[in-house]
């Protein structure tokens, strides 16, 4: 397997231009998702989905943020962040896919084979981030491939290529993690105490994300779950409880017949 590749999305330099969202749609030929006016700041897309594989979130915050030394002064803050499939180390979508349509690529990413997917929808409910979705007029599930085709051709994914501020960085995951550590330290030194990494730790509930983020507020503010856990972590326990229930079923029926036979004899 080649080196594990990933995205580091540094939201502290995102300018909300949506070039990533557009480049993704263009390259992957994604259908439009309806022309809806959501009135949520500059966001009229809402969330990731079958036809949106990069989604820029806009959060306008009215709480004052200290500027320079004049602690009394405040500005309103505008957070922007380009969300994407996390390409989890322990990917629930991949675990639960019953057809083998979802697979782990040589780049360590998670991709759906569109010629195999039969649209069962299990991956949709398994994803702890609400990323993957079924395209209803097509019947199959779709999500970010981290531009598997471009990577095969030695190119970086379309979103990273289009990002004008390098908010979206693509590269070997190890390198990105180091770079992200340095960036957080730099921001902390500059007084941005709220800067934190999200999804970078291999010890988190999904074993670390292949696409991780530098955020300036709590994850849920950006629509991200604060502590996602791959659902299959509990699968052995689930089967044990189901096994106990299955045995109870057999036992209950056996008792029912045994007791009524006694009754008949009496």
């Amino acid at each position: 397997m080649a080196e594990r590749m990933g995205f580091f999305t540094d939201t502290s330099v995102c300018i909300g231009c949506k070039a990533c969202q557009v480049a993704c749609k263009e390259w992957n030929l994604l259908p439009d998702d309806g022309f809806v006016f959501e009135a949520n700041s500059y966001d009229n897309t809402g969330a990731l989905g079958a036809n949106t594989w990069r989604h820029v979130a806009f959060i306008e915050q009215s709480r004052p943020v200290p500027v320079d030394d004049s602690a009394d002064d405040g500005v309103e803050r505008w957070l922007m962040s380009s969300d994407v499939c996390k390409h989890c180390t322990h990917a629930a979508c991949l675990d639960v896919c019953p057809t083998g349509a979802l697979f782990r690529t040589e780049f360590g990413t998670v991709v759906i084979q569109e010629d195999i997917c039969n649209g069962c929808g299990y991956c949709v409910s398994a994803c702890p981030y609400g990323v993957i979705e079924r395209r209803e007029d097509d019947g199959r599930a779709w999500k970010c491939t981290m531009c598997y085709d471009r990577q095969r051709g030695g190119l970086e994914p379309a979103c990273a290529k289009a990002c004008p501020t390098d908010s979206i960085q693509f590269g070997p995951l190890d390198e990105l993690r180091e770079r992200a550590e340095e960036r957080v330290e730099r921001l902390h030194a500059d007084g941005q105490a709220e800067a934190r990494l999200y999804g970078e730790s291999p010890d988190d509930g999904v074993g670390g994300a292949g696409a991780f983020f530098l955020l300036l507020d709590e994850p849920e503010v950006y629509g991200l779950p604060p502590d996602p856990v791959v659902t299959t972590r509990d699968l052995p326990a689930m089967w044990r409880w189901a096994g106990a229930a299955a045995l109870s079923v057999a036992g209950a029926v056996a008792v029912a017949f045994a007791s009524s036979r006694k009754g008949a004899r009496r």
Partner: peptide, 19 residues
């Protein structure tokens, strides 16, 4: 299924991680 004609793909793999 989103693609009912592909129902036999269910028996393409035997995958203990997928209930």
């Amino acid at each position: 299924l989103g693609r009912p004609a592909r129902f036999l793909n269910m028996l393409r793999v035997f995958k203990p991680t997928s209930p």
